[in-house]
Design a binder for these strands. Sequence first.
DNA 1: TTGAAAGCGCTACCAC
DNA 2: GTGGTAGCGCTTTCAA
Lengths: 338, 338
Amino acid sequence: MAKKRVSIKDIAKALGVSITTVSFIINGKAREQRISDEVSKKVKDYIKEVGYKPSHVAQSLRLGKSKIIVFMAEDISNQFFSSIARFIEEKAYRNGYKIIYCSTDNDVGKAKELISTFKMRNVDGFIITPTPDLEDVIKDLMEEEFPVVLFDRWLPDVDCSHVIVENKKSAFEGTDHLIKEGVKRPAFISLESDQTQMIDRETGFREAIQQSGVKGLELKLKFHNLAESGPYQELFEFFSKNRDIDGVFFATNYLAFEGLQALDSLGRNIPKDVKVVSFDDHYFFGLFKPKITAIEQPLETISEKLMETILNHIEELDKGYVSRKIILPNKLNIREST
Amino acid sequence: MAKKRVSIKDIAKALGVSITTVSFIINGKAREQRISDEVSKKVKDYIKEVGYKPSHVAQSLRLGKSKIIVFMAEDISNQFFSSIARFIEEKAYRNGYKIIYCSTDNDVGKAKELISTFKMRNVDGFIITPTPDLEDVIKDLMEEEFPVVLFDRWLPDVDCSHVIVENKKSAFEGTDHLIKEGVKRPAFISLESDQTQMIDRETGFREAIQQSGVKGLELKLKFHNLAESGPYQELFEFFSKNRDIDGVFFATNYLAFEGLQALDSLGRNIPKDVKVVSFDDHYFFGLFKPKITAIEQPLETISEKLMETILNHIEELDKGYVSRKIILPNKLNIREST
DNA sequence: TTGAAAGCGCTACCAC
DNA sequence: GTGGTAGCGCTTTCAA
């Protein structure tokens, strides 16, 4: 069993040099400390030979940094979040950071608990999709000088960095597109939520219908988590009761998937009877028959900006906090459903 | 700035007791150590008052355990892996563990590097979908007494615990089902891969066609990662050249999604002209028109067994290693495509 | 019942 | 150029 892990002390002893010397060489400060090339080489060779790896735990304890960033999503099994997770992960590794992820299920209690345990781990930063009522926790985090960046939605009462998209504008455009395609009675399907991204999308929808004078209607569903069945039934009933609907804007793709099934069961033809636009483009919208028009969020750019922002905050911890608010444009992919 | 983190030392000083006493009380050993209820209460109250949280980093260093388990998937943005990640995460948290995840992209180099950096972090265990040629690294890991569990596929040359599914049996059943539905010329679409799960699925297919005497054909595509475009083009050409194909078995769902598009472009009707079965059921197979017959892996059971196995290994580290090999049954969901 | 102190592995200040 | 050593926060043995 090669169970014996070598420590810096073992190296020093084996080579008859001091721990300090070894440490300097490991950390690339040999030159700076004017350690002789001879010793330096000897140590480096020995390190390679025995396969020494410094303990990150000890480094963490000593330096108060862990090189770990937490990524708190609403639900990591949701394609939107897992795609961002994927990009983030890659960018993090490239910068020497690891990612710990977790899903909040949009539950404050869970989010609070999670944040609290991560604090004990000296994590270097938090990337968070805030749940409702998380304001105080975020404020605490910021007071304790933890780097934090929010995404997908933000908290109006907290001056915290975030990376979001143009929800209102895109919802406006999507709705406007429906109307321009001849829709007279558009429906907006969303979640019961007072979170910024949903509110902005709703506002965009409302402004668009108001501007053009058509009369719309709205349906808000409650959040369904992993264990529960989807909102198919409610959607079925809604579409069944409101036969005059000739256009639907889904505020998020998961609602669209369920809604499209409901429309199909009701025998409504897309795009002839009903035109459809959804927020959050998805691989499968291109596979549907007909292909579904959707608003695509720039996943990779979001991830890039998130990493950039969090790394900036980490680096500039001492220089005081200046929040960065980044708002990115989306793209309307027009397909067969409109 | 509530930046001042209290340590166990601060508590001891503030209350005029020793660090030892505080430590015992925190760790629930007050009774055992016969610390007076009075002191115990005083300390507990104070801890609550100042919101003291022990540093996990220091505990890690001291105890050599981190309460972190690594989850290495092929690609975390793939629905199969992200769903398992989600279940694992939940079960881990319930047991006081955190999960660090990463994606290997099926690349040995990346996997090796990742494993090496995690070793430095004293992680308590590894859950891994092994990439090709990872045998030696896994062996090393096991020799160093790190708990390891593989999943999705395994390594025949290494006696390591794993949780997999009945690939051969299910592929046999799926193919057999195609044949029973009248398919005379089945195609098997898979990845160029000598990994166990793909080989087993291929074997299942071959045995089924052999048994019934029909003549099948096979297509193997190379692995496409996130950045590359899918194998649509190859599939289109294949189906276009082999017009006599009247049944397709896709070895994994991502191939099916691309393949279905190709079949559609070619105007082949499902299930009239071509019947389709895919491995790895997916939410969208139920949304397709027609709905696609698919083999469903028991995601939650897989996750449960993974956690159970890794926790077992962690607990029984000292008792020596006995590998556990778990093979779970799948479910064939018959739908409209056959 | 409680406390002192060693030590987990490492960094970096200070001394020689 | 190199080495000694304090100390990050905690657990645990041994002593009192």
